[in-house]
């Protein structure tokens, strides 16, 4: 009798230890990756990184300024396309849609967010790059927008569902049309949550590389034209990392530090918006 209990307790203890060990194993790579990004990143970051464009292969120096600006432009245009679609699509789901159609669209959005981002790049290549006869910033933005839409749609809908029905009813009872009620009451009450979702979506696409490979393509110069290839920070990190040059590796680490800092500030900001309500 005693031994059975002892055995059960020992099994219990072993399993608890195993779970602890698994958790530590999961967190070790996180620690290692952070350690290297900070160590290599800080030792390679300088003013040139933010002000210079890359030097030709093998030459020392240069920076990633065009990539940083390019990423900003790509994300900006992607947001212009993706945010209205995602937010107002979510308005349909929560305010108008019958439950069956809404479920179908919701399901498609979840499935869409699981499509590999490189496929999104190929699709945009076929639909935009081929007809326009060239790689372009616009194509890159479109690819990023396609990735943003399902994320923004789902988070916005969650937020709209949390707005109490009485608020809408109060506004309607005052004679405000439904569309104005939606804009001025429903969306406005959910604004903070929606901003959180938008920031998270922006953080997600800021690091996307695969969909830009055959849309924005990347280049080594300054460019701000939407109909021409444009540099992007993640693309530059990729190209520099796989190159054989030490100085380009240095730039890649510096770029990685910039990218990670940017993304974490975005998600911190998102958390702050999420809290302050």
């Amino acid at each position: 009798m005693m031994t059975a209990i002892l055995r059960r307790k020992m099994t219990n203890g072993l399993m608890m230890l195993a779970m602890l060990a698994a958790t530590v194993t999961v967190l070790v790579p996180l620690g290692l990756i952070f350690f290297y990004i900070l160590k290599m990143g800080f030792s390679s970051i300088n003013l040139d990184l933010f002000t210079q464009i890359p030097k030709p292969p093998g030459e020392v120096g240069g920076g990633m300024a065009n990539g940083i600006i390019g990423s900003g432009l790509l994300i900006g245009v992607a947001s212009l396309i993706g945010l209205p679609l995602g937010i107002f699509g979510a308005v349909y789901l929560s305010e108008y849609g019958t439950s069956r159609i809404s479920t179908m669209i919701r399901f498609s959005a979840d499935v869409l967010s699981g499509v590999p981002s490189i496929i999104t790049g190929m699709v945009v290549y076929g639909l935009v790059v081929v007809p326009m006869k060239g790689f372009s910033a616009l194509a890159g933005s479109l690819a990023l927008a396609l990735i943003m839409i399902p994320i923004v749609l789902r988070t916005t809908e969650e937020q709209l569902k949390m707005v109490p029905m009485t608020l809408r009813e109060a506004s309607l009872a005052l004679g405000v049309p439904l569309w104005r009620t939606t804009l001025k009451v429903t969306l406005k009450s959910a604004l903070k949550g929606i901003v959180t979702g938008v920031l998270l979506a922006v953080a997600r696409v800021a690091g996307e590389t695969a969909p830009l490979l055959f849309t924005a393509l990347g280049n080594m110069f300054w460019s701000h034209k939407l109909n021409e290839p444009i540099a992007a920070l993640p693309l530059q990190i990729f190209n520099f990392a796989i190159s054989p040059y030490d100085d380009w590796h240095r730039l890649a680490w510096g770029g990685a530090l910039v990218l990670v800092t940017l993304m974490f500030s975005l998600s911190l900001l998102a958390r702050w918006f999420g809290r302050a309500r």
Binding site: F88, G89, Y92, Y96, S108, L112, T120, V123, L153, W179
Partner: peptide, 26 residues
């Protein structure tokens, strides 16, 4: 109301459209 609802319908159904378009394009 009509215009606003029409817009949201269009945007929401574009999700289905995108998924379909991707498959057909590929």
């Amino acid at each position: 109301d009509f215009v606003f609802k029409g817009m949201t319908v269009l945007f929401a159904f574009s999700i289905l459209g995108i998924l379909l378009l991707m498959t057909v394009a590929m």
